[in-house]
């Protein structure tokens, strides 16, 4: 039997009249990379903070590492690593001192922290910046340092809230690479993101969240299979040509999405659809053929795009 590290049932979080998280159910297994995918404001960060035992649930059942976060918050936090969305590194301290003070909060011995900090700085490629202050570090370096900080206590569960938001593409790939390696080492990862590529890259299993609710659950592959077609055609038209083309498009597609800037055509065989459209006199100004992604799943489930 697989052990569940985190179990949420009917979990809700309200701030006054506003419901941030609305009765969600999920289970996170040991060793997996579990994702919460959804747009900003979907309730992901609130969920993460409840799992991190720093935010009391308004109602519902939550168990982290088999314990109740409101009763055993201290014990739970001792076995978690947290990488918050917002940079809260201590800018009064150097890179190494950030790891040192943080490690001390876990009551780790100084020698052990030193050994671990050297390893981690190597791991996040910051060894050369060991004695630098935090402020001059680039955004990507800061994020890597926060990840190293979250790993100082060898956590059983690493919680990452939007780990690559605000980073440039190159810096994102470095972070993904490090997280992938952690996953290989068997660290359980919980990740929130509003980037579908990040979710596809990193997550074994994920839930799609929207407006505080979970709207779908599964592996990236299975979600795409269940909620989308194999291929997607993205067609762009001259302003007036689109309305004439739409009825024709619908005959070749399993489903279409009419977005402000383009028409998405969902089909299992895009090449064939392109030929059929052309034969029926539909000539878009641009045609793009691609595989379905989680973005399409989200669009299907909510009628909206992830990044608005």
């Amino acid at each position: 039997m697989v052990e569940s590290l985190v179990v949420g049932r009917g979990l809700s979080k309200k701030f006054g009249d506003f419901t941030a998280v609305d009765s969600i159910d999920f289970q996170i297994q040991a060793g997996e990379a579990f994702g919460f995918l959804g747009p900003n404001g979907a309730g992901k960060s609130s969920t993460m903070r409840m799992i991190g035992a720093t935010s009391p649930p308004t109602s519902g059942h939550l168990r982290v590492l088999g314990m109740d976060p409101m009763v055993d918050g201290i014990k739970i936090r001792g076995r978690l690593g947290v990488v918050p969305q917002e940079d809260n590194l201590d800018r009064e301290l150097s890179v190494y001192e950030n790891l040192l003070t943080y490690g001390r909060y876990f009551n780790m011995a100084r020698a052990e922290i030193d050994r671990r900090a050297a390893e981690l700085l190597e791991f996040v490629q910051l060894s050369e910046r060991r004695d630098s202050r935090v402020d001059p570090l680039s955004g990507g370096m800061k994020r890597r340092l926060i990840i190293a900080r979250g790993l100082i206590n060898q956590p059983e569960l690493l919680i990452l809230d939007e780990p690559t938001t605000g980073l440039d593409p190159q810096a994102r790939h470095v972070v993904w690479d490090r997280l992938y390696q952690l996953k290989q080492e068997g660290v359980t990862l919980v990740i929130t993101t509003h980037y579908m590529d990040e979710a596809e890259q990193l997550c074994d299993r994920l839930v799609v969240m929207d407006k505080g609710r979970i709207v779908a659950e599964g592996s990236p592959r299975s979600l795409i299979e269940r909620y989308s077609t194999r291929d997607v055609l993205e067609l762009r038209f001259e302003a007036d040509a689109r309305d004439q083309a739409l009825p024709v498009i619908e005959t070749v597609a399993q489903r279409t999405e009419n977005l402000p800037d383009k028409v998405m055509v969902y089909t299992d065989n895009a090449d064939e659809a392109v030929i059929r459209l052309s034969n029926n006199g539909v000539h878009p100004i641009s045609t793009l053929i691609r595989r379905s992604t989680l973005e399409d799943v989200f669009l299907r489930l909510t009628g909206r795009q992830l990044i608005e």
Binding site: G52, I74, K75, R77, G78, V82, E86, N88
Partner: peptide
Amino acid sequence: WRKNYWAQISTPLT
């Protein structure tokens, strides 16, 4: 500003 309290409460500190 420094936000160190937020970092500290995500450890065993209360």
